[in-house]
Design a binder for these strands. Structure first.
Lengths: 211, 211
DNA sequence: GCAGCTATACTTAGGCA
DNA sequence: GTGCCTAAGTATAGCTG
């Protein structure tokens, strides 16, 4: 059966899907709020568990915000290691990064390569953003369509339904349900209807790298 | 009143102060749980707001866990690259007039950075492909959905049709046409269909009407 | 150590000032 | 961009298997 149209259940918090927020303004607001919450989590984690934590967030506009305990620099240094390889069980006691100097011309070739690569990265990023926006639009259109179907069914009075007849109702329900199901499944906007106490997001959910 | 309440008020969550957890075991458990939550927050932040996020956590034992979107190394390079002045809570431009590297590790750093950038390019390319595949699937799903509706009605047996009654048969064409059109219009354009069809007492709101 | 539970503390989406 | 408000959605402390 098709879910009834969902009106705003309240003035309070609403559930949202974890996907790029389309509205630029809403995205910005969300960014501010969640960034604060994120850093708070980082802080709590470091205090409660005596863990060292560093978190850096780049806003879409390019601004960088960071949190670090004991300090961002120290931890980054520790993470990246004294050499190119990342070492797991740390042993660097260098509490301060050394002096940084601008690269000389010796590495001009490498520098150019890096520049090109960076340019490529940026270009690809822009393409990616464009594509994300396209998908947002498609999804928005889809949601509107789904909502429209839902509304239709939801607003259908019993009288009207009777008018259709049992057979038509069945087909209609099947059509709508099936279409809705297919759309949701295929388009990844569905959810697990089986168990509302969602569980089982155990492993491999995050791109977390372990050492 | 004397605080006699040193009992557990319930079986549920209890309030704790944000301070180092004394019990080693409890601290470890908390670390695991909160670390997961922390990375989840990072992931959500990056997705919801299209922000780049990197988070690194060192367990008390020294193990390092990290999350990074698009990639830890790329973001760290981006964060540290532009200049030396990288302290906490500092803004950094995305643009870099020149790449700065640590003295004495210039070549190693450059090579490493180039490697990371190449990895980035590759990763982004793959992500782009993934996204394109998703879009293709979405289109295919839409087409399948539309086709399914068609076939469903088209393959309807005479028996079924009899069950529906003559009126339903008469409307069948309208069902298909309207549903198809609705899907196509709404899905592709997101345009609101004209729903104000004349409706007598039993007229259906849905494209299909009573017979 | 991780997975599952319960009940609750905490976070935050959507509005509004 | 900031901050407050409400109500709901989530994360998670404390336990158990």
């Amino acid at each position: 059966m098709v879910a009834a149209a969902r009106r705003r259940p309240s003035l309070g918090r609403q559930k949202i899907e974890i996907r790029r927020i389309e509205s630029e303004e809403a995205r910005q607001v969300c960014f501010s709020k969640r960034r604060a919450g994120f850093f708070k989590k980082a802080s709590e984690l470091s205090i409660l568990c005596s863990a060292d934590v560093v978190a850096i967030v780049f806003s879409p506009a390019g601004k960088a915000y960071s949190f670090g305990h004991p300090s961002v620099d120290y931890l980054l240094e520790r993470f990246m290691g004294p050499n190119t390889g990342n070492n797991n069980n740390i042993n660097t006691n260098t509490s301060r990064p050394g002096v940084w100097v601008k690269r000389g011309r010796v590495e001009g070739e490498l520098n150019r390569q890096c520049g090109e690569l960076r340019t490529m990265v940026e270009a690809q990023r822009m393409r990616q953003e464009t594509m994300e926006e396209m998908m947002d639009k498609e999804r928005a259109a889809r949601n509107r369509a789904a909502a429209w179907i839902d509304t239709d069914v939801a607003h259908m009075s019993a009288e009207e339904l009777v008018g259709f007849g049992a057979g038509l109702m069945a087909v209609q329900g099947a059509v709508v349900a099936r279409a809705d199901q297919m759309l949701r499944d295929a388009l990844l906007i569905g959810r697990r209807p089986t168990n509302n106490t969602s569980r089982g997001k155990g492993a491999g959910f995050f791109p977390v790298r372990r050492f």
